[in-house]
Design a binder for these strands. Structure first.
Length: 103
DNA sequence: CGAGTGACTGCCA
DNA sequence: TTGGCAGCCACTC
């Protein structure tokens, strides 16, 4: 059974509205810190019902080739910078921040 | 079952 | 700052 995919989906579904997470971050939370690419693959194959639009690259950019993602995020309250990048400093999923060293 | 692929990431020029 | 390269390993064919 594709446990990896299942884990990824489970984590992505936990992302609250108005928040975003990075592929690497999700992979890490799922227990696979080195599988950022696989997270992307899993989401690419994700069935409907998975809020995969809340997942972005570590650069804070939307997924290449997916123009609608930015609009979906903006509709949820995610703020974008003029350069077209997400303001990760504000919208990064709190669960991800919990895994980081105290600031 | 073997080989190729990828919605990523971090480092270096 | 931007662009390019290599590593990563489960999933698909």
């Amino acid at each position: 059974m594709r446990r990896f995919d299942e884990e990824i989906y489970a984590v992505v579904q936990q992302i609250p509205t108005g928040a975003v997470a990075t592929y690497g971050g999700i992979a890490r939370l799922a227990g696979y810190p080195a599988h950022a690419r696989l997270a992307g693959l899993a989401l690419a194959r994700a069935p409907e019902g998975i809020p995969c639009h809340r997942v972005v690259t570590s650069d804070g950019r939307t997924v290449p080739g997916w123009s609608a993602q930015r609009r979906l995020l903006e509709a949820e309250g995610v703020t974008f910078r003029p350069g077209g990048r997400i303001d990760l400093a504000r919208c990064r999923w709190s669960a991800e921040r919990e895994t980081r060293p105290a600031q």
